[in-house]
Design a protein around this nucleic acid. Structure first.
Ligand SMILES: NC(=O)c1ccc[n+]([C@@H]2O[C@H](COP(=O)([O-])OP(=O)(O)OC[C@H]3O[C@@H](n4cnc5c(N)ncnc54)[C@H](O)[C@@H]3O)[C@@H](O)[C@H]2O)c1
Ligand SMILES: NC(=O)c1ccc[n+]([C@@H]2O[C@H](COP(=O)([O-])OP(=O)(O)OC[C@H]3O[C@@H](n4cnc5c(N)ncnc54)[C@H](O)[C@@H]3O)[C@@H](O)[C@H]2O)c1
Lengths: 251, 251
DNA sequence: TACCGCTTGTGAACGCATGCACAAAGTCGG
DNA sequence: CCGACTTTGTGCATGCGTTCACAAGCGGTA
């Protein structure tokens, strides 16, 4: 539960094995892909396509066809053998599983570079995630509308979140403020947090955190470059501007 | 290789099993965590800490201590039994493995909401990822400096990328332009791409793509809310605007 | 109606990652 | 110098996720 999932996995607690755990047994990885299928299917629906085979859909989503079918099987059997899937039907079933039959109100905290971009972004409302509240400590920002929503002061976070039924909190503050903001969101009743600050947040078990750390993403890319580089040329990357460092990794 | 990794995994090709595959056998998931350890360790080093045990470090990074030790063991044995790890030593070894001994020049394409935020963000250069080039199609933007770098026209992408030795391309354009931009980056020799546009990019095998899809992140959070909701109350989420649909999932 | 070809859905095998538990290896105090 | 204590490094078992391969099921056709 109290995970800290992000790009490459990152469990925190062992998560009790039995309890009422079995619940809805859809693998986490499959959920992420279902969201991708949904986007692709929505695009197809918009273009008037109304039937699709697992082969076509998997291609468009960039995954293995068998995996796609297994993923879809987790949510039920809504295809027609010999034919494929009805786009509309699939869309509505995935939406139901992902809990998108109701809107999820989003609050953005920290209206700086990133916060502005998020607040101005028009892509969320259409996907069921209306941004309904913005917060910052900066008095100069409070009251000013960004993307149509006036910025509230961070001290009003509980009242505003409750009033606007915020269910997802997005943290876009500097790292030192992130934990404090997180705590405030949690005590305001927000149970889902998307964190852009490069810090590991501590939250109670009933709160779900996902993090987006761009530096980590880049470092993973960097790793692949490096691996590829000394895979090609046995050793030594070539023109590195750093003295002696091109030796073998493992002794 | 030609994966499309993101939040929850997303393989594309089966990736030939043997070949020279064995290479550097560090699990992808471990690489992502190493980047997190590195950040935590850097923070510790800044605070004057110079030794740390696996228990402390794992706590700070939000992972299991055993997992942390296993992750570190992939890069070698640099701890001292009975004592712990030397922070500096660990930092430099992780940096070496992640290929951070040399800087990776970054180009951002699409200087809109998000592109501005990225260009203005001061966190990348310090972590070894200097942003050295910005591109857009919009003639009004070309020439204007953002975050100290003047925006170049997208048509100059090859020349500029080659000249500035760009190794990572960040795509922050609207979705319809993403594939085309991606193709241009690839033909300019860029082998690593970080994609913010919600589309599945097609790339050759020698190019590594990672995607950041915020809508997907939110949908995953939404799924957990929904799961938790009907875990508490037996069945039926409540007010869904879709006729008859509140039945059990699997027959 | 009976057959044929196509696509789904899934059982089973495999492989990767996680977590446990402990031996190996080092430090520190006496 | 020795013994007790601490913490690493890792073999092994377990569980999850991916992939294969095929039977079951459906539409179309004669
Ligand atoms: N901008 C990017 O592209 C980018 C990229 C990667 C990561 N990040 C991370 O995202 C976060 C935000 O980045 P940014 O560039 O937008 O920073 P920023 O400095 O531009 O904006 C931060 C905003 O948060 C506000 N703030 C500070 N303390 C607060 C508090 N306690 N409560 C509410 N608001 C508070 C500030 O007033 C400011 O408006 C940082 O943690 C950064 O590391 C940003
Ligand atoms: N802004 C956000 O917070 C946010 C959140 C999630 C996803 N995204 C995604 O990130 C991408 C960018 O979002 P945004 O809000 O910055 O959009 P935006 O419209 O503000 O900016 C897009 C920029 O790309 C430029 N552009 C268009 N076509 C181009 C081309 N062929 N080559 C170079 N530049 C081109 C445009 O001139 C514009 O400046 C979109 O795909 C969006 O879906 C953005």
């Amino acid at each position: 539960m109290a995970s800290q999932r992000g790009e490459g996995e990152m469990n925190t607690t062992p998560a009790e094995p039995a309890d009422r755990e079995r619940a809805r047994a859809i693998p986490e990885a499959a959920v992420a892909r279902l969201a991708v299928y949904l986007r692709v299917l929505s695009g197809m629906a918009d273009q008037g396509v109304n039937a699709v085979s697992s082969e076509e859909l998997s291609q468009a989503a960039g995954v293995n066809a068998a995996k796609l079918r297994k993923d879809l099987s987790y949510i039920g059997s809504y295809g027609t053998r010999g034919v494929g899937y009805d786009v509309e039907v699939l869309v509505s079933h995935i939406e139901r599983i992902l809990g998108l039959t109701r809107n999820h109100s989003v609050a953005v905290v920290g209206i700086g570079n990133l916060g502005h971009a998020l607040a101005n972004y028009g892509g969320f409302p259409g996907r069921g995630f209306p941004v309904t509240a913005l917060f910052d400590v900066d008095a100069d920002l409070v009251g000013i509308p960004v993307g149509g929503i006036p910025v509230s002061h961070i001290d009003d976070i509980t009242a505003v979140c409750v009033e606007r039924e915020v269910s997802i909190g997005v943290i876009a503050t500097p790292p030192p403020a992130a934990q404090s903001v997180c705590d405030r969101l949690v005590s305001a009743g927000v149970q889902c947090i998307l964190n852009f600050a490069p810090v590991v947040l501590q939250v109670p078990d009933n709160v779900e955190v996902r993090k987006v750390d761009l530096a980590v993403e880049m470092q993973i890319l960097s790793f692949h470059v490096a691996r590829r580089a000394d895979e090609a040329a046995g050793v030594s990357v070539g023109n590195n501007g750093l003295g002696v460092d091109g030796m073998v990794i493992r002794p």
